[in-house]
Nucleic acid binder design. Structure first.
Lengths: 109, 109
DNA sequence: CTTTCGTATCGTAATATTACGATGGATAAT
DNA sequence: ATTATCCATCGTAATATTACGATACGAAAG
């Protein structure tokens, strides 16, 4: 056991959960916030910024890349990362949609 | 190793990651969507709704309760769950804020 | 009081995530 | 050509998550 039973849920539910999972680590939040703040390609200084080992940082970057949230291009010796604005927008819309369709009266419990 | 190094990150970053983690499973998304759709106390039928074992469902409910997203009240034999509108709103605001402060030009990579 | 029903919790197995050292590959500098 | 730098990947250990059966617990019904 232990494996998520994805077949029990709708495609949309699995998708939202996957997107949330991409954000479910402070290091990845930190990376995203840093890239957003810089609003540009960021080369190199991500490892220094985070305080995690280089291998660990690379692993988190890979997950964000797999999620589509960031993209990296090789720039000589360095690799430069930035936000993928298209996917970023998708996340924004999806989470906003998820939280919107509530009727927050709370008149029951 | 393997434990998240929470002390490396800001309080806000850890908080966002924790909130995302609460959403990072399709069963929990399904529970939340169901509660939102019903917009009322839901007693009992959650186990049938999900298709997971009773123990597993209870475990997910507990995590959502810990995250504050839902609240449960004992109603005789049953326990009734509903969205906690206050915390729901907090999530909505926080995620909207997180995704808003991007400048999605993407003019670099 | 005993039984039944709905949940929570415990124990545990399977799997996933997180973290890091070590290694390798590519490019720039010497 | 050799060296240095940056980054990805591999291997692996520590920890966390997911899932379920078994059991416990409390309230209502008999």
């Amino acid at each position: 056991m232990g494996a998520t039973k994805a077949d029990l849920f709708t495609k949309q539910q699995n998708e939202i959960a996957l997107m949330a999972k991409a954000l479910a680590h402070p290091a990845r939040i930190a990376i995203l916030q840093y890239l957003v703040k810089k609003n540009a390609c960021v080369c190199g200084d991500l490892v220094d910024e985070l305080g995690l080992a280089q291998a660990t940082t690379s692993q988190h970057l890979k997950e964000l890349k797999t999620a589509g949230l960031i993209q990296g291009t090789i720039e000589g010796v360095n690799v430069c990362y930035c936000i993928n604005p298209k996917v970023w927008k998708q996340y924004q819309v999806l989470f906003a949609g998820f939280f919107k369709d509530v009727a927050p009266d709370g008149s029951c419990c």
